[in-house]
């Protein structure tokens, strides 16, 4: 990675400047162009799993959060085709879990709900609802997990491992049976703590990780996305100063094979 080398990209016909080594998403963020995302979160290693950030680069669909920006790349971002893929991915998430916004305490700050509103998804689609029945793990005195609402973004896994230095969460199972498991029989068996970054409202984009007794504290109208659509902080240049400023990275093993192909420039160091 060569530091600070300026490169030029074209996104939906618009030419932008970026720094070599930046991901497409970071390059766009810096220019006030919001690429939708769910599994990516400021301060966490990107993993490119939700694919909501899909863009087409030189004719190939890639995840903008993990794809390095290349000089001269021609990026298709808001074409009907790409937006269609993104909408379908978001729609399918609603069908895979039990996302009952009317009774969910994450409503109003939920990134999945906000993404659906941004995409104009307001009614059921023709996909079947899988209606999973997964038990709520309320064993921990301060935290509960409702896996029926999980979208498998893995942000909690990365936050616990890379920021908190714990390994409270991990993926278990394969394919349609894949879900988030905890490092023990139940959450109470783990070393999870309410003050962990993994348990903060910034990490879980939906209502899966629940901070006990705090539900519905925010009145309707004052919740994160009640008045601002998701991504507006990036599209609004005045909010840029808050971007990429969140947390310290606890530990990332550079020799870890999982991370070999990840652009480390996306991991934000503690700037406070």
């Amino acid at each position: 990675m060569s530091d600070n080398k300026k490169i030029t990209l074209t996104i939906d016909g618009k030419t932008i400047q970026a720094e070599s080594g930046q991901s497409i998403m970071n390059a766009c963020d810096a220019q006030g162009i919001y690429i939708p995302r769910l599994c990516d979160s400021t301060g966490l290693v990107p993993q490119g799993s939700c694919r909501v950030c899909s863009v087409k680069v030189n004719g190939r669909v890639v995840a903008a959060c993990t794809q390095p920006a290349e000089d001269g790349a021609n990026i298709e971002h808001e074409s009907d085709e790409i937006q269609g893929y993104r909408k379908d991915l978001v729609r399918m998430l609603f069908h895979e879990g039990n996302h009952l916004c009317p009774i969910c305490e994450a409503s109003g700050r939920c990134e999945l709900q906000a993404m659906a509103y941004r995409f104009g998804i307001s009614q059921a689609t023709t996909y079947p609802y899988l209606q999973p029945v997964r038990p709520v793990d309320a064993s921990h005195p301060d935290i509960a997990l409702d896996n029926n609402r999980c979208i498998l973004c893995g942000r909690c896994i990365r936050a616990s491992r890379d920021v908190d230095g714990k390994n409270v969460f991990e993926y278990v199972g394969r394919g349609i049976h894949k879900r988030i498991g905890v490092n023990g029989d139940c959450l109470a068996d783990t070393n999870a703590d309410l003050n962990d970054y993994a348990m903060s409202l910034e990490v879980c984009p939906v209502g899966c990780i629940i901070r006990k007794g705090e539900g519905f504290f925010s009145p309707v109208g004052e919740r994160q996305y009640d008045s601002d659509k998701i991504g507006s902080n990036i599209e609004n240049h005045t909010a840029h100063s808050s971007l990429g400023k969140l947390i310290k990275v606890h530990q990332i093993d550079p020799n870890d094979a999982i991370h070999d192909d990840i652009d480390q420039s996306n991991v934000n160091e503690d700037k406070s």
Partner: peptide, 14 residues
């Protein structure tokens, strides 16, 4: 049954 107590006022009103 099984839901968390602070959810109850929001759920049952439905």
């Amino acid at each position: 049954q099984g839901r968390l107590l602070w959810e109850v006022p929001v759920i049952v009103q439905r």
